[in-house]
């Protein structure tokens, strides 16, 4: 994954960059399987590697294939990135180890989901149960965001063909 990202930074051919970002998504999906997120891996493989690559190719086909060499100074962004990264690494020193069952994240609401979700919802897949039932409001909000984004894209990109067609019909 690190290699893919470095290539994305280096390359100027946007087609290759988009393909590499698809590969990056696929690698992320395999990582999600390793950490037990089968549902998430499924989604990432279908969305990240499939749909978003197709969308980016669609955008490339109506814009341009090549990136012009960066004229900007790269020194300032590099400095910002290094400083931020160092601060974040310092922050991780307090984090629990990978896979630690005693980590605070596993202590709050997760035990209830794990123990009671089958009893309360009769759905064996906890992710589905939590998604649709315990956090129903959350999911409703997300669906509304997707709805809004879809409407936005239609408004931005679809030509006002409807009106023109109606004018044609009037003329005919």
């Amino acid at each position: 994954m690190v290699l893919t990202v470095l290539l994305i930074i280096r390359l100027h051919n946007l087609f290759a960059v988009v393909m590499l970002s698809g590969i990056y998504s696929l690698l992320a999906a395999t990582f999600f399987v390793v950490v037990d997120g089968v549902d998430v891996a499924f989604t990432e493989a279908a969305v990240g590697a499939g749909i978003s690559t197709v969308l980016m190719l669609g955008a490339l086909s109506v814009t341009t294939q090549r990136e012009k060499a960066a004229a900007k100074s790269t020194l300032v962004p590099l400095a910002v990135v290094v400083v931020t990264g160092a601060a974040l690494v310092y922050g991780t020193l307090d984090m629990p180890n990978y896979g630690d069952p005693e980590a605070p994240i596993h202590k709050h609401v997760a035990p209830r989901y794990i123990e009671d979700s089958l009893k309360e919802t009769s759905v064996p897949n906890m992710v589905t149960a939590v998604l649709a039932s315990y956090r129903g409001y959350d999911t409703l909000g997300e669906v509304t965001v997707i709805f809004t984004a879809g409407i936005g894209v239609i408004l931005l990109l679809v030509r006002v063909g409807g009106r023109r067609r109606r004018e044609d019909e009037d003329a005919a």
Partner: peptide, 30 residues
């Protein structure tokens, strides 16, 4: 709960599928 989850997931699926097709058609139609 089971019934509710089932129906709600169907709603989610319908919206997601339609939005994705709509977005793709919008890009391709351009």
């Amino acid at each position: 709960q089971h019934l509710g989850i089932f129906v709600v997931e169907f709603g989610v699926g319908l919206t997601v599928a339609s939005v994705m097709v709509a977005i793709f058609f919008a890009f391709a139609g351009r």
